[in-house]
Nucleic acid binder design. Structure first.
Lengths: 236, 236
DNA sequence: CAATTCTATATTGTATACAATCTTTAATCA
DNA sequence: TGATTAAAGATTGTATACAATATAGAATTG
């Protein structure tokens, strides 16, 4: 649990403070699909919810915009980003190039403790699925990839991977067609086996096919959409 | 000329306005090594220079911080970033993975007009070297890679490449040891030949070895300068 | 004289007031 | 009625005043 929270935190380079808190909270809501693409984030409303002035809120929203989780339209405001079909393709193409390499690097230097963390993470995924908490399960399965990037101890790749995975979450919200998410867990298990044996090549290969598989789970013709009030969504 | 300006502009997702102008100007100064790593960017000073309020300046500085060209320290201010040795290694490792792929993609779809643009760019590089304008030459040789990313028409990779090249400029300012920069031009020429023949594999290979070569031009033991204050630069 | 504490100054952090712009609603005209 | 225009309201953009913090210099102490 503590591990998960820290992964959220490390996603921004904002200095500590209220802006950072707001960034993290909003991000959490976006990655768990509580906030869906297209939803407007009004400065007053967000400020009201978090007890912060607009100055602070704007800092957080601009940071989210830099992370491409939010789009800011001049004189119109901030909205949860809606990645285009082309962007969706590109994000997964990038993941197909970068993440196998990262997985290979992780396999090289992974420790038993790291493996335990990943095992616990997979368990948490299973629990979320069992509990029917789809948003949480999805969020966790994304963070699985982030943990691997952290294990690889390569800050540059790690940051890129985090960004790509965040954007993947939005892409999945818009274009995911498969209803069975359980198939993913299989890949994660297989990856763990490769890690346990420090098998670099196997890790690369499994990660590659895993991402190709995720990519193929997208329906890049239709997109889904819905609108809700921000206050309702954040339970505040 | 116009092409070069547009490449600066496309480096940020800031909305049009004064913040964007400041971002672009500061970035230009950083990439041409007019502003060196460690230099402080005081909000008042920058605001004075550009005739803008601190609100606007802060937006620009925060954007630069997110691009990792600037580091913001709480209650201390913004400084031109000073990449560590580890970060320098990682940036070039990332470039070695990503840029060859991008060069291959560009080779596949490049047009005669694109090739002409690249040729003109190389000529501008030569002119800058001939004129002894080292900063300009360096900046241009970086943008050569950005243009290739644009030709590949892959926004996600393009953005990553832009970021890596910006950071490379800081890294070169801190760790470059070679005194002859002319050798680079050769690689750029060779790349152009591969592009002209739409030779994907050759483009990948040349780009890879070009970046490995750049990487080997770094002295990752000693850094050329540590913190420079604005006072030092102004001889006060 | 060196080291330390204290004070004054300068700089950044935040809230807020006002301006500019967009959005919605009401009114007008064909 | 339907479309167009005009006014009112709401929202974002920007400047600025004040608060919090860090920095530099002076005073103090051993």
């Amino acid at each position: 649990m503590g591990a998960r929270a820290s992964h959220y935190q490390n996603l921004t380079d904002l200095p500590q403070g209220k802006s950072r808190d707001i960034y993290i909270e909003l991000q959490k809501a976006i990655l768990s699909h509580s906030l869906l693409p297209g939803v407007k984030l009004s400065e007053d409303e967000v400020g009201e919810l978090f007890g912060a002035s607009r100055t602070i809120v704007r800092t957080a929203l601009q940071a989210l915009a830099h992370s491409q989780l939010v789009t800011i339209e001049k004189n119109r405001g901030a909205f949860i980003a809606q990645p285009s079909v082309k962007e969706a393709q590109e994000v997964f193409e990038a993941r197909e190039l970068i993440e196998p390499r990262v997985a290979g690097m992780a396999a090289k230097i992974i420790t038993p403790k790291d493996i335990e963390i990943l095992q616990n993470h997979i368990k948490a995924e299973h629990d979320a699925i069992a509990a029917g908490d789809k948003g949480e399960a999805l969020s966790l399965s994304g963070f699985f990839h982030v943990i691997i990037a952290d294990i690889a101890e390569h800050d540059v790749f790690s940051k890129i991977v985090r960004s790509l995975i965040s954007r993947s979450s939005l892409i999945i919200a818009l274009y995911w067609k498969r209803l069975d998410t359980t198939c993913e867990s299989h890949s994660h298990h297989a990856l763990l086996d490769a890690f346990a044996e420090n098998d670099v090549q196997a890790a690369e290969k499994i990660m590659k096919s895993h991402i190709v598989d995720l990519h193929s789970g997208l329906d890049l013709k239709s997109r889904s959409q819905s609108k809700q009030s921000l206050a309702t969504i954040l339970n505040k």
